[in-house]
Simulated scan of single mutants.
Amino acid sequence: MASDTNSWFEDSIQTLTYNRNQRVWSIIVSLFGDLARAPGDRISGSQLSRITEPMAIKPEAVRVALHRLRNDGWIASEKSGRSSFYHLTQSGLVQSEAASPRIYTRDVIYPDVWHLCIPEPLRKSERDEQARIMRREGYVSVAQGVYLGPEVAPKRDDCLTISGDLGVLPRWLKQQISPPQSVKAYEDLEQALDRFAQILENAPTPTPLEVATLRTIIVHVWRRALFSHPDLPDAFFPEGWRGTACRHKVMDALDRLGLPGLDSLSA
């Protein structure tokens, strides 16, 4: 009978993990960014195992992922008796906080005015560094040496800047920003979210651990789709793009599940 009782949970995991090409370290990033992104939050090794085990992630894979994230300076660990606890470093907290508005905002408001920024032409060997600098400043590359930024252009003497509304955007730009594989990723995500919503209709109240597992998977697949393209309004994407629909359905799913307290994950 236990397997019948939990079949909704197993069906949910099967539905939401439709993309089997998952990196464990990235799943751990999603987990901490959703469940333990406040200063002072920490998760034990045994809690991590209980959250990730239903995803068919082996403890050895979790340990390798934690080792990598420690080396990257993203998480830190400490011992308490025989147990290990993990928490975001200051760098990890800052990065999680910076990403959170894009991940969790239900209705994103974009500016009406945008600007193009055209820096000094450079030799090929210098272009990559220029592109990295522009991305750090919040720009999106729309053509070689041409960058798009929000709001009216700031005053700067190192670029030619042009401000205005978006007008009609060319098809080639939309396809460049969201190629076919990105469009398909949102279609697959929406299908999984719709199926998950149907499963929840007849499901019992999830336990805190079940909620933690499901939230981790949902946030992870959402992050994978969301950060595969620049943060831009719908006008920049091809007709039929389902990004905004997926955003609303992700928020609906997370709201319905709620956020479990870390203490509740020890039971």
Score class of each variant (00 low, 15 high):
residue 252 D to L: 03
residue 98 A to W: 03
residue 171 R to L: 14
residue 18 Y to M: 05
residue 62 V to S: 12
residue 204 P to I: 07
residue 184 K to C: 08
residue 255 D to P: 01
residue 100 S to T: 05
residue 183 V to W: 00
residue 18 Y to S: 11
residue 231 D to M: 01
residue 261 G to H: 11
residue 77 S to K: 11
residue 98 A to N: 06
residue 91 S to T: 14
residue 234 D to W: 08
residue 267 A to V: 11
residue 28 I to Q: 05
residue 164 G to A: 08
residue 26 S to Q: 15
residue 88 L to W: 06
residue 114 W to N: 02
residue 183 V to E: 04
residue 134 M to Q: 12
residue 194 D to L: 15
residue 71 N to C: 08
residue 254 L to T: 03
residue 245 A to V: 15
residue 167 G to H: 10
residue 127 R to L: 13
residue 19 N to K: 13
residue 48 L to P: 01
residue 171 R to E: 15
residue 4 D to H: 14
residue 236 F to T: 05
residue 121 P to C: 03
residue 219 V to E: 03
residue 25 W to S: 13
residue 187 E to F: 07
residue 182 S to L: 12
residue 40 G to Y: 13
residue 144 Q to G: 11
residue 209 L to F: 03
residue 76 A to E: 12
residue 100 S to E: 09
residue 110 Y to D: 08
residue 217 I to K: 00
residue 57 I to N: 00
residue 37 R to Y: 13
residue 49 S to V: 13
residue 263 D to H: 13
residue 225 A to E: 09
residue 101 P to R: 04
residue 51 I to E: 01
residue 204 P to A: 06
residue 231 D to P: 01
residue 4 D to R: 14
residue 237 F to W: 04
residue 72 D to I: 02
residue 235 A to Q: 15
residue 153 A to D: 02
residue 14 Q to A: 15
residue 76 A to V: 09
residue 245 A to L: 15
residue 248 H to I: 00
residue 93 L to E: 14
residue 50 R to V: 06
residue 252 D to H: 11
residue 199 I to R: 02
residue 80 S to C: 06
residue 218 I to G: 03
residue 207 T to D: 05
